Amino acid sequence: MKKIKIGAVGLGRLGRRHAENIAFRIPNAELAAVCSIVQEEVDTVKKEWGIPYGYSDFEEMLTNKELDAISICSSSTEHCRQISQALEAGFHVFSEKPLGIGMEEVQLAKQRVKAHQGQIFQLGFMRRFDPSYAYAKQKIDEGYIGKPIMIRCYGVDPISVIDGAIAFAEKSGGLFFDMAIHDFDLSRWLLDSEAKSVYAIGACFQYKEFAAYGDIDNGAAMIQYKNDAMGLFYAGRMCAHGYHIETEVIGTKGSLRIGTVPYKNLVTIANENGVTNECVGGFLERFESAYLNEMQNFVDCIIENRKPDVGVNDGVKSAEIAYAAAESFKAGKIVYLD
């Protein structure tokens, strides 16, 4: 079996998970190189996992002719540049969202991908690869709830990781780009329509540190789509009970919900504290299978020479919504998309 040799840049929480999946869970892939600006991360992974090559300089990794593909899980501010450089160097590219943190970067990334049609490019909207979301999409397409007319998305990070969110705020692109963009992509996919107008509000209700970067700790948006469907979105950083990702789609003949209660598992505990269910604690736990499935799909697309279903246009369209939401919040008015 041919193995696709992949170099992974970024070894933070998500970057390390992707690297680990490539190294140990995808039979037709090989983690041949790792790269991080934190030398200790490179040294640790290289030694403990037996990885042949380790780099602290991304451009140096791109000179490695043994590699077939690059997995980009660096800071959002680096995505556009690294996507462009990796494609120009002849590699297939998987990149975490977003394509960039501003529309100029997003459009530039789109141009670079379109200029390299012979190479595989996949963007990390992993929720499409989650079994529950994939099942919901199937049911919608089969007409189980009739014509979808509204989507409600609720995405809140656990307050236990608020310090990390503050530290990352300068490079995140803001709440709508960093967090809500997953839900914006889901809405396009599940409703099968593009956004027409956006109105967003929000504030720093408790953590004023985000304001220094023009960001907020909680925000909401309302979207109308070109097929007249409606969207309601809430994103926040202060969930007390864990990591809560919930989606509801209402149709003309019914509705469906994904993740109404973010159960950790099917165990119910009864003791002196009452009857309780533990909740998932973070995105790596909730979407464990989705991260594996999306990277497996990327590798399969390279081997089979087919384009991924999640590509650069999905990144552009979702970023347009996120950008419009940010502009709406700042201007206090509805923003219309072309």
Rank of each mutant, 00 (worst) to 15 (best):
H182K: 01
G90L: 06
A29F: 10
E272F: 06
K114G: 05
E142I: 13
D163H: 08
E40I: 02
F177Y: 09
I334N: 04
G311Q: 02
G54Q: 03
L284V: 13
G15W: 12
S193M: 02
T77R: 14
S172G: 10
N28M: 08
A86F: 10
I245H: 05
V335D: 01
Q206E: 15
K147Q: 15
N277I: 04
G242C: 01
H116E: 05
E96G: 08
S76W: 03
V299N: 03
A23Y: 08
E20K: 12
K137Y: 14
E320F: 02
Q119A: 01
T247N: 00
G12R: 11
Q122L: 10
I321S: 07
G202D: 00
E278V: 00
L67V: 03
R257V: 10
Y154F: 14
M103I: 05
D309E: 14
I162Q: 10
A86T: 12
E105M: 06
Y53S: 08
R286Q: 14
E246H: 09
Y225I: 01
R16A: 12
G274W: 05
A290N: 00
E278G: 06
G146T: 15
V161I: 11
G164L: 02
G102R: 04
F233Q: 01
M126W: 13
M126A: 14
D215V: 03
I101P: 05
Y336Q: 15
D163F: 05
D185H: 06
I26Q: 13
Y199E: 14
E170L: 05
L62F: 06
S74L: 07
V113F: 00
Y263T: 03
G118H: 08
R81D: 15
R16N: 11
G259I: 01
G332K: 05
K137W: 13
L256N: 01
G231A: 04
I250N: 05
V45Q: 08
A8V: 09
G202C: 03
I120K: 07
R128V: 14
C239T: 04
F58V: 04
L123P: 04
E320T: 04
R128L: 05
Y133K: 02
S172N: 09
R188L: 07
E59D: 13
K114H: 06
I321V: 15
Q296S: 15
Q117K: 12
W49A: 11
N28A: 10
I26T: 13
G155W: 01
